[in-house]
Design a protein around this nucleic acid. Structure first.
Lengths: 147, 147
DNA sequence: TTGCTCCTCACGTCACGTGAGGTGGC
DNA sequence: TTGCTCCTCACGTCACGTGAGGTGGC
């Protein structure tokens, strides 16, 4: 939101801010989940932008919340890169039909992600309901035993 | 709920019913997460009761939904075994004070599990909200482009 | 008896953890 | 200059996957 060009982050800072470790971030670079600056000289420190930080945050979040494998994550992130490309095309065209087509594809993508999230949420809610039921049972028994 | 003594299940059936594999179930036995009948002769088939099935279901559910390590799961399941022991004590005593103490411990345990579940749910809801927001944006743009 | 499914090693894999020894930058 | 954090191997670990070769039970 701000246009101030924030100073680059070091790997330890990115790790801290995303709740991971430097090793994990290096591993994600190794398997191609993170870009990894091509021009970094052997042995020199890795530097990250705010955008890199956001990408790591998203990876960690999807990994933890949806339990996706890194291969699945790679596919999902590739699909998102494709969407970013579509957004560029969107802005480049004035053709209403083309714009509609792009928007509809975007909608399908969001829809499928929402399905994943909502499925998980439903399972968690079922688990929560079972725990609340147990809780009520205990509360009732405690009440029966008097104040 | 029914008292019919259901026939024992084989490892493949348990795997199917819990969404895992025989290998995973054997592995859980190997590391002590599952009991594993002590009297099974070398090379003979493993047989499971309905109670075993429920235990595997719970393990898989907690593993997937809460992302717990098997070591954490082992601790959680041990705590649950302790609670089962408490329930036996509960039924064995008539002392109201003792019963209250047991119930309160039970309450604490459920509370901490609920915290885990609700924390996860909150994160998922935040992710869902972000996706819905994106969805609304796309829907608005589509409306602007006309029917 | 014929097919399944099951059994036990045992090595492979995915996603990192954990030193070992060395260099970089505020 | 002194500490930190970073670097690159490289081996270890956790939670299984995946055959290989063999036996069990409807």
């Amino acid at each position: 939101l701000s246009a101030t060009p924030t100073k680059p982050l070091r790997i330890g800072e990115v790790a801290e801010l995303t709740g991971t470790t430097p090793r994990t971030i290096r591993y994600y670079e190794e398997i191609g989940l993170l870009p990894g600056a091509a021009d970094r000289a052997q042995g020199k420190h890795r530097l990250y932008t705010e955008a890199d930080l956001e990408r790591v945050k998203e990876i960690v979040r999807l990994r933890d919340l949806l339990g996706l494998s890194l291969e699945q994550l790679r596919q999902l992130l590739e699909a998102e890169a494709a969407r970013a490309e579509l957004r560029r095309e969107y802005r480049a065209t004035e053709d209403a039909a083309a714009r509609k087509r792009i928007l509809k594809q975007s909608r399908r993508h969001i829809e499928s992600q929402l399905e994943l999230v909502r499925g998980r949420k439903a399972e968690l809610e079922k688990l929560e309901a079972e725990l609340v039921e147990k809780q009520d049972l205990v509360a009732t028994k405690l009440r029966e035993l008097g104040a």
